[in-house]
Amino acid sequence: MADTGKKNARILVFSTEKISDPAIDMAGLLKLHYPPTVYAISIPCSSGVKPKWILHAFEKGFDGVFIAADGSDCPYGESCTEKTGKIVSSTHELMKQKNIEPARLRMAAICSVCSEAFVRQMKSFNENLLKMQGI
């Protein structure tokens, strides 16, 4: 059983409908537990995330934002990884300007069967975010 009193970081996940959503769903199906303060918003492709959405999430109190990138599995083409990487880089710059620690935005490729990888990412990201907060 989970330690119900344990503090967890609030993490917003931008997840893609065809690729990472099935992985996140399968993590639930397999009862692979991860922090319950992880919330996912589905989008068609990870290279379509606007930096202003990420900044909005930080303004609203999210501790971290995770982009579950399509990587080489992207049904829309090979340029997805590079484009998603550019979004992360440009958002990191914007975060620095606003004195937001860039490490609070993380991106990793999550394929349609990468349930365990997703759970690992959420747990380690949660721990890193808590460390940043001195918890």
């Binding site: 290279s47 379509g48 959405w53 909005h56 083409g77 484009k83």
Partner: peptide
């Protein structure tokens, strides 16, 4: 796919069903 959204310097592009209003209101709720 939405690949055109983040590159627009004037934020003139929205994806139907994934507009700024929709995504930001979801973030507010979450």
């Amino acid at each position: 796919c939405g690949m055109c959204l983040p590159v627009c310097p004037t934020d003139a592009i929205n994806l139907i069903a994934y507009s700024n209003s929709e995504i930001e209101s979801m973030i507010d709720a979450l």
